[in-house]
């Protein structure tokens, strides 16, 4: 019926193998998701390599951008965790950059006509990825928390000034609350990326359908077209914001590990 068909809103999340790889019985194939992880990471590396190639007293354009990013995350870590946060700075910075680039690259439209497996893809639109990042953070918090505070780390779960008989219940709730915070973070990042891409795809599909109808009807494609443009602009904002939110909440979480005994 239509001149050209828009892909369904869920198709963009499909994982498609490009090169089949197996490690024992585990499938570690290079997929479109892996491809865009590699492209994103590669872009970050190329950028920082170029930016730090010649560390100049008066920074060039690339070096300025790199320094702005550095100061931005460094300020965040310092303000949230304090001077002790210094050792977590590379982790938070890597996390921020990785998520930011992953979020952003998936928003670019694919070249028409290339195979589906090579279409732009957002690795952070998959819960397993955001969950893994959250789990990594939680592991760091638990390991460092016990290393730094010893058993004082448990103070984190014991709210003060409450009747003793309520304690076991509240400690249980606090433990679950502690464990569910990074999970909530993972769900939020995933859901934002997922919903954003679905909405974008729906708008784009609507535009394509109206344009495909031909004739005067094409004029009615203009409204959703501008809608799609507006949503795309919004998605870029959300992509950056969600990377920032993830970094902020990671810092808050790490702060618990550093200062658990002070509670």
């Amino acid at each position: 019926m239509y001149g050209f068909r828009a892909a369904g809103p869920m198709e963009q999340f499909e994982i498609l193998p490009i090169v089949d790889l197996h490690l024992g019985s585990i499938n570690i194939s290079l997929t479109n998701s892996a491809l865009w992880m590699l492209i994103g990471t590669g872009a970050i590396i190329v950028f920082f390599f170029a930016a730090t190639r010649r560390a100049a007293l008066i920074p060039g354009r690339l070096q300025s951008v790199a320094e702005v990013l550095y100061e931005f995350v460094a300020d965040l870590v310092r303000d949230t965790i304090g001077p002790e946060g210094r050792k977590f700075f590379p982790y938070v910075f890597t996390l921020f950059m990785w998520i930011l680039v992953s979020n952003l690259f998936g928003l670019f439209p694919s070249f028409p006509g290339i195979p589906h497996a090579l279409h732009t893809f957002t690795p952070t639109s998959h819960l397993i990825v955001t969950l893994a990042l959250a789990m990594l953070t939680i592991s760091i918090v638990i390991v460092y928390g016990f290393y730094k505070n010893g058993l004082g780390f448990f103070k984190l779960f014991a709210p003060s000034g409450l009747p003793l008989w309520l304690m076991p219940l509240l400690v249980l709730i606090e433990v679950i609350s502690f464990l569910s915070r990074p999970l909530s973070l993972a769900i939020r990042l995933f859901a934002n990326m997922f919903a954003g891409h679905v909405i974008l795809k729906l708008f784009a599909g609507f535009v394509v359908s109206l344009l495909g109808a031909g004739g005067a009807v094409m004029l009615f494609g203009i409204a959703p077209f501008f809608g799609a443009v507006a949503v795309t602009a919004l998605e870029f904002l959300v992509a950056a914001l969600q990377a920032y939110v993830f970094a902020v909440l990671t810092c808050i979480y790490l702060n618990d590990a550093v200062h658990a005994a002070d509670h």
């Binding site: 569910s180 999970l183 859901a191």
Partner: peptide, 18 residues
Amino acid sequence: AMRASSELLAGIFVGSLL
């Protein structure tokens, strides 16, 4: 709404998993 639902979902998920 996103925040509230993700917090509740995560809490229930971790609780039921334990």
